[in-house]
């Protein structure tokens, strides 16, 4: 088990290291003076800020220092939580923008991932059991996984928001509201959250259902299932075992799908103008705010790595074999 975690942490460490390095390197690969060219391309909100920004970023990049010093400094500011200052939302620090957006993104991601995983697994297990269900759940699931997140989001926003007018289609809460700890505000928040959450949930659902169905069918054909059938064990018990064991590869699958799910959340936020990281990234791209973009990149990488680690811990708890120490989840 220690080896298993050691390996995982090494991979995550290397990944983060690489991400930071790429992040440091990419702007320096741009021809000419990166600060000047970035500032020139960006749409800075206040023109008078240009000069201040130039000075600030020249200092931050520290081009007069040797490259390794620059590199070390960038790690230093990273650990201080300093991601620079946004060009687009000058003079707000990038870190502030990001930390303000992250709760919204998490509020969409965490419930939709967990719920779609749980419900999808249940559905898939049911589909593996009954032909009728298999013939309905499976095609629907394939359509759902083939649907681009952004399109389902757009369809739902259009249908439920514009045509039927049931839900709001933009923002995290109504313009007329000021964030506060009141019941009204929470209702408003929830109302804005429901559609983007549902569309994320639905698209992700299909994949889990398909995956669970296939794994459980495989488990039901495994040796232990055959042995139990030969000993006359009721299908209920065999299915319980099969489901339990089929959950394991689905947990690994969750780790593998994180990137896709995060991407899905980002575009869904954009469709709903939801004030999470996705909308921030869109703003950064449209306004050529490279510092904001870089900060968002590191935030997402870090978030995905942490999530991966949590999944590893869960896996060890759920699969006794990892604790016994012989095997681990597929790296």
């Amino acid at each position: 088990m220690r080896r298993y975690f050691g390996r995982k942490l090494l991979i995550y460490g290397l990944t983060f290291f690489m991400a930071v390095t790429v992040n440091w390197l990419v702007p320096r690969l741009m021809p000419g003076d990166p600060v000047a060219s970035m500032l020139a391309r960006a749409r800075v909100a206040q023109p008078e800020a240009q000069e201040a920004l130039r000075v600030y970023y020249n200092n931050l990049f520290g081009f007069d220092l040797p490259w390794w010093q620059q590199y070390l400094n960038s790690w230093g500011s990273l650990f201080r939580g300093d991601f620079g200052i946004s060009l687009w939302a000058f003079p707000t620090p990038v870190a502030d923008l990001l930390t303000r957006a992250v709760p919204y993104s998490l509020a969409l991601l965490v419930p939709s991932i967990l719920l779609s995983w749980v419900v999808g697994n249940r559905l898939g297990a049911l589909a593996a059991r009954r032909k009728v269900l298999d013939n309905t759940v499976l095609p629907v699931s394939y359509v759902l996984t083939a649907t681009p997140y952004l399109w389902l989001a757009a369809l739902m926003a259009w249908g439920f928001g514009v045509v039927w007018g049931i839900f709001p289609v933009a923002g995290g809460y109504s313009f007329s509201m000021t964030p506060s700890f009141t019941w009204d505000f929470f209702v408003d928040l929830f109302w804005h959250w429901l559609l983007p959450f549902s569309s994320l949930f639905l698209v992700a659902l299909g994949g889990w259902a398909i995956g669970m169905r296939n794994v459980i069918i495989y488990e039901l054909e495994s040796d232990y299932a055959n042995y139990m059938s030969a000993l006359g064990a009721p299908q209920k018990l065999i299915r319980r075992y099969a489901f339990r064991n089929a959950v394991l590869p689905q947990i690994t699958g969750l780790a593998l799908q994180l990137g896709v799910l995060v991407a899905g959340a980002l575009v869904t936020e954009i469709v709903f103008s939801y004030p999470g990281l996705g909308s921030l990234i869109l703003a950064a791209i449209q306004n050529k705010d490279f510092f904001l973009l870089q900060g968002a990149f590191l935030f997402i990488v870090l978030g995905v790595l942490i999530a991966n680690f949590i999944i590893d811990v869960v896996y060890v708890i759920v699969d006794p074999r990892t604790r016994v120490g012989m095997v681990g989840a597929a790296a």
């Binding site: 232990y224 042995y227 139990m228 339990r244 064991n245 074999r321």
Partner: peptide, 16 residues
């Protein structure tokens, strides 16, 4: 009753 050929994998791997 039966003793299967696949004794090595006849028991559910995730149950004591």
């Amino acid at each position: 009753s039966l003793i299967p050929q696949y004794s090595m994998s006849a028991m559910n791997p995730t149950r004591k």
